[in-house]
Amino acid sequence: MRVLFIIQGEGRGHLTQALSLHQMLKQAGHDVIGAIVGVTAERDVPTFFSSAFTAPVTPIFSPGLVYNAKTNALEPFKTTLKAIRTIRPFWRSLKQVRAMIETHQPDVVVNFYEMLGGMTYALLRPSVPMVCIAHQYMAFHTNFQCPKGQWFYRQAFKINTRLTCFGANELLALSFDKQPDEPNQRVRVVPPLLRQEVTELKPTEGHSLLAYVTQPGLKTELLKAHEQHPEIPMDGFHSGATLPDQKVDDTLTFHAIDGKRFLEFMAHCKAIVTTAGFESVCEAAYLGKPALMIPQANHYEQACNAIDGQRAGVGTASSRFDLDKLIDYLPKHDVAVSEQFRAWHAQGYFMFMAALNRTQMPASGPSGGFFWTRMRHLLR
């Protein structure tokens, strides 16, 4: 089977999931012929991905999220304005995506939560079947818990998520644990995608806390937490660090973002402190490391992840860098959660291969007016 990827380039989660599936497909004897990665003028394809992905990588413009540099809060209004201002280049991007699909004629397109994929299939209707993979598709699951009292953010999140998956044969919703499928929503619940670099690690019980901060504003919170608990050893990976190791004092060291080193540190830490991104929390759960999940301000998706992570028992959530909350939680953490998570993850290979094989069966789903049919159901 010849497979083409379309990947959201924001953050590291979707990119690492694509690397994991790439490894899985190669093991099964399939051919990943390339990857289209959504980028902006400020955000190119990360080196960790381009150096590890063995097929050709094509960066194509896609509107990105806008964060406040000081507060680290997601700014929905500025994000929307940016998207509106870039409609013309975005339309050119959609035509470029369709041209690549029709030229290379893969057997299936796998879309990792990139709007380029959903909107290309909605408006230009390529002839190749598409499967979409992301934790965000759990938003269409009846058991998925969301923050209360945030109706606007909830609707914006669901609309954005729907825009990534128009025309898809199936939505593979990555989940911390096993949940029933939602056939009416085309949702199949599947295990997280973790790279072999994670599953091959041999974790040990450490004494240091490991922090991963993707936005500059979180560095300030990390430093405040360190001032309150200078006795706790901490290692912090963040985008502002320029050297592999930048020692602040005897118990705090910053590190430049490095995927391989980060995983090595995670395997030997006591717990992790991170934003509520799905991928890092799953890696920690597999390695048996409890997580303090801190959703970024106004980031509804991460707020949902934090609630879901608490439900699944992989860690505890906080609105700020609150080490006291993590310290109180650690004695209560159930170590059996990691064993259950590993057992669930082990089912993934067969479930992903089955999903891709189903795309080669005769089509029986809705077509034609599917785009507008789903639009009418967005706010249900």
Rank of each mutant, 00 (worst) to 15 (best):
Lys260Trp: 08
Lys270Arg: 15
Gln228Leu: 14
Ser239Lys: 11
Gly236Asp: 01
Leu252Tyr: 05
Gly217Trp: 06
Gly236Met: 05
Pro230Asn: 10
Gly217Ser: 10
Ala276Arg: 03
Thr199Glu: 09
Ala303Phe: 06
Glu301Thr: 08
Met293Thr: 05
Thr204Phe: 05
His255Cys: 02
Ser280Ile: 06
Pro233His: 07
His229Glu: 07
Phe254Trp: 08
His226Asp: 01
Lys289His: 08
Lys219Trp: 13
Asp308Asn: 13
Pro290Phe: 05
Ala306Val: 03
Leu210Lys: 03
Gln215Tyr: 13
Tyr212Gly: 02
Met266Ile: 08
His255Gly: 01
Ser208Glu: 12
Ile257His: 09
His207Thr: 13
Ser208Trp: 03
Gly288Met: 06
Ala241Val: 14
Gln228Cys: 12
Ala297Gln: 14
Glu197Met: 12
Gly236Val: 06
Pro290Thr: 10
Gly309Asp: 01
Thr251Pro: 02
Pro230Gly: 06
Gln228Lys: 15
Ala303Lys: 13
Thr275Trp: 02
Met266Trp: 03
Tyr286Cys: 02
Lys247Arg: 15
His226Glu: 02
Cys269Ile: 07
Asp249Ser: 10
Cys282Lys: 02
Glu205Ile: 10
Lys219Asn: 07
Glu279Ile: 06
Ile257Glu: 03
Tyr300Ala: 05
Tyr212Leu: 13
Ala267His: 04
Lys270Ala: 12
Thr253Pro: 00
His207Val: 12
Arg261Cys: 05
Glu231Asn: 13
Arg261Gln: 14
Cys304Trp: 01
Glu227Cys: 14
Val198Met: 09
Leu210Ser: 01
Ala303Pro: 04
Glu283Gln: 15
Gly217Lys: 11
Ala284Tyr: 02
Val213Lys: 10
Ala306Pro: 02
Val248Asp: 03
His268Asn: 13
Asp308Gln: 12
Glu205His: 14
Ala303Met: 14
Leu209Tyr: 03
Glu197Phe: 09
Val198Gln: 04
Pro233Lys: 10
Val273Gln: 05
Thr204Pro: 05
Asp249Ala: 06
Pro244Phe: 04
Tyr286Asn: 03
Asp250His: 13
Leu222Tyr: 11
Gly236Lys: 00
Gly309Met: 07
Asn298His: 14
His229Gly: 07
His229Lys: 13
Val213Gln: 09
Leu223Thr: 10
Ala285Asp: 01
Val281Pro: 00
Ala241Met: 11
Lys247Val: 14
Glu227Lys: 13
Cys269Ala: 12
Gln215Cys: 06
Glu227Pro: 14
Leu223Val: 15
Gly236Ala: 15
Met234Ala: 01
Met293Arg: 09
Pro216Tyr: 10
Pro290Arg: 12
Leu222His: 06
Ala267Cys: 08
Lys270Glu: 04
Glu221Phe: 14
Ala291Gly: 04
Lys202Met: 12
Ala285Lys: 03
Pro244Met: 12
Ala256Lys: 15
Lys270Thr: 06
Gly288Pro: 03
Thr220Phe: 10
Leu201Asp: 03
Leu210His: 02
His268Gly: 09
Glu227Trp: 09
Asn298Ile: 07
Phe237Thr: 01
Gly240Ser: 11
His299Cys: 10
Leu209Asp: 00
Lys260Leu: 09
Glu231Val: 08
Ala267Arg: 03
Ile257Gln: 09
Ile294Ala: 03
Asp235Asn: 12
Gly288Trp: 03
Thr253Gln: 04
Thr251Gln: 15
Phe262Arg: 01
Ser239Ile: 15
Thr274Tyr: 08
Ile257Cys: 06
Gly236Cys: 14
